[in-house]
Every structure is written in structure tokens, then in C-alpha cells.
Design a binder for these strands. Sequence first.
DNA 1: TATATACGCTACCATTCGGTTTCGCAATAG
DNA 2: CTATTGCGAAACCGAATGGTAGCGTATATA
Lengths: 106, 106
Amino acid sequence: MRRDIFQAIADPTRRAIILLIAAQGMTPNLLAEHFDTSRQAISKHLRILSECDVVRQEPSGREIYYQLNPVKMEEIEHWLAQFRNILDQRFSNLDNLLSTIQNKSK
Amino acid sequence: MRRDIFQAIADPTRRAIILLIAAQGMTPNLLAEHFDTSRQAISKHLRILSECDVVRQEPSGREIYYQLNPVKMEEIEHWLAQFRNILDQRFSNLDNLLSTIQNKSK
DNA sequence: TATATACGCTACCATTCGGTTTCGCAATAG
DNA sequence: CTATTGCGAAACCGAATGGTAGCGTATATA
């Protein structure tokens, strides 16, 4: 079973859950009110988010508040940074090539 | 069929393909050499990436070079910015709360 | 012209996904 | 104590996923 943040944010419902929980910790029932799907479906998404450690449980009586773990989101930023580095490097190589051509034409 | 960038980057092979193509446009056969999977599997990933407009085809004789469309990647950045905004807002509200408490204690 | 290569497309397969329904358990309310 | 509420877990279903194998076509090469 693949289970990383990229798989966690692949589903639009889970992305919405992340944004909602980022604003404030919420219970599954509270979350389900924001979507036109069942509480169980939301619970399943929360389980996936928990397995990815994107979200943490905080029991309070018979309710469970789900809180965001912002650290996990950095893995996305990390991959994007990798991506941007490659692009930057490519462009700087292009610059080198261009200046080489300029030098030759002199 | 769901088809957006978040679904495109959900698969680790596709993430690797994106990074490889970001560095340099490549043909399916060339790409397949970097993985221990078949050319057909890579072609399928490329089709998904094409449908998401993350990647563009550039025919050259009987070869097809796949080039990256960097613009599409900004959608990820956009969602992350949304996420960061919510977190920032939450913290500034906390600041407001704290200063309110301070004022009351005065 | 005959052959080899690069590729997309379709058919097929096992697995996973997102969802619903049902159930059982613990905590609260009456 | 009994009824209700909040929740996770399991069984099940249709659809999508990632992969393979084989076919057809266009380009390049002998």
C-alpha cells in the first residue's frame, strides 16, 4: 500500500479536509457537514491522512479532534524545490551556452 | 476520470519522469532506460501527464520528445500558498487573542 | 524493396480507491 | 439502567490504476 503525502493530496476531498483542519482542529462529524458525503467516507479519508502522518488524533471524551501536522507538508515543498533547482540549473546552462556563442562571434 | 496535477504527481514514477524531463526533453525509450519497467508502462504515464498538460509532445522524425510545461506546476504552488495563508491567519488570530488577554490583565 | 525501429493503442489482469451499509464499542444523556 | 451519540472497522461494490502483451503504423536503414 503506497502511502505518502503525494497520495494523500491526490484526492480533492482530502485536500479540502487538510485546509479545513489547518484552520481549526475538527471532529469527523463536523468535517462531514462540509461535504455531501457520509461520515464514514470522511473517516476513511482521515485514516489515510493519519497513516501519512499529515493529521493527528486528539481524543476528548467520546469525540476525536483531528489536528494538522504541518511538518509533513514540507515534503511537498521539498520536492518542488528539487524541481525548481533542476529548472534553474537548466537555464543557467543555457546562459552559459549563449555567452559561449557570443564569445565565439567576437 | 479525475485528471489534475495532484493526481499526476501521486505516482513516484511520474514524479521521477517530471524531474528527468525538467532537466531535458526525452523520448519514451530514453526515459524507460532510467526505470526497471517496460516502455509501454512509461508511455502510459506519459499519456496521463499529457492529459494533465504537465508535458507536451514534440515529434521529430519517428521519435517523440516530451517537454515539460512548467506553468502547470504552479497549480501545486497555488494550493500550498492557500494552505500557508490559512496557517498564517490562524497564528495571527492567536496573536490577537494573546494581546487581548494582555490588555485585559492590565 | 525488405527489414528494423519508435511509438501509440487496445485488450486484458490483479490491485487499489472512494464510497455505502452494517456492525460493535465506548462515552454521554435521560 | 437504558437510549443516544460519536466513532472505527469490516464487508462489499463499481470504477480507476499500474502493469503486461500484442497489433498497427510511420519513419529510418540495409
